[in-house]
């Protein structure tokens, strides 16, 4: 009888999706965000974010790679010798990235061309390696998988925010290159064109046509680094416990 209760207690301690599991998913979105707090994986965040569509693809690719490399490393963690663990981890990551790259090349060649070397650079994206070292080597597979998904989403969220700001103000469009492409502001917008064509006699069209000029700074890669700096600033003013005291 006593034995049975002990067993039950053990089972209760680790539910399939309990509070701890939920925390693994939500923590990277705010308190432990990979980009703004852990400062991992900045390289790709800066390079691919000039358009929203490739950034969403990149975010999905990174999430898949982090989640599955976390899962596989966690499964193998007891068999990996400490001295060669870096190389074993890198081989796992490189294999997954190759799979993702080939899938992307087969199904969406245009995006594959646009992302070019940055898909390959997921291998050295510090988020993947950092999570493997910090989490997957010490935790069970299911939890590691959730941690991977959470971190991938935390990374992807920031990536998409930066991309939306850069594309909207730099090009006046959103989701350019995707089926859902739309012009929001600037001379290429449909509504703006309508006004230019119909009301040009009254000077209204000219005003509509020129009310917003694309900001070329946003197209440069330096813009993304400023935006990350400002996001960190806002994030830390809201979440005071993250402020750097040193």
């Amino acid at each position: 009888m006593a034995e049975a209760t002990v067993k039950e207690a053990v089972i209760e301690k680790e539910p399939f999706f309990g509070k701890k599991e939920k925390k693994l998913l939500t923590d990277p979105l705010n308190d432990n965000n990979p980009i703004t707090v852990q400062v991992l994986g900045i390289c790709s965040a800066l390079a691919v974010t000039s358009l929203v569509y490739p950034s969403i693809v990149m975010a999905i690719a990174v999430t898949l790679v982090v989640a599955f490399s976390n899962l596989f490393t966690s499964m193998l963690r007891t068999y990996i010798p400490k001295q060669v663990r870096m190389i074993v981890q890198l081989v796992i990551i490189a294999t997954l990235v190759t799979v993702v790259e080939l899938i992307l090349k087969a199904f969406n060649y245009a995006i594959w061309k646009q992302l070019s070397v940055f898909i390959g650079l997921i291998i050295t994206n510090c988020i993947v390696m950092g999570r493997l070292e910090a989490f997957a080597m010490a935790n069970k597979p299911w939890r590691s998988f959730l941690d991977g998904i959470g971190n991938g989403l935390g990374y992807g969220g920031i990536l998409v925010i930066i991309a939306i700001i850069r594309e909207l103000f730099g090009k006046g469009t959103l989701f350019a290159g995707s089926p859902a492409a739309m012009n929001i502001i600037g001379p290429s917008n449909e509504i703006t064109k309508y006004w230019i064509n119909t009301a040009s006699d009254h000077g209204v069209g000219a005003w509509f046509g020129s009310w917003y000029l694309n900001n070329n700074l946003m197209v440069l890669s330096s813009a993304s680094i400023f935006i990350i700096g400002i996001i960190i600033w806002i994030h830390r003013s809201v979440n005071k416990k993250l402020v750097d005291i040193s």
Partner: peptide, 23 residues
């Protein structure tokens, strides 16, 4: 430097400025 920007945030903005200078 404003407290929330101290350390990391400032490093980002400095790198951005250096990037523009190198352009």
């Amino acid at each position: 430097v404003p407290a929330p920007l101290r350390g990391l945030g400032m490093a980002f903005i400095l790198t951005g400025l250096m990037g523009i200078a190198f352009m």
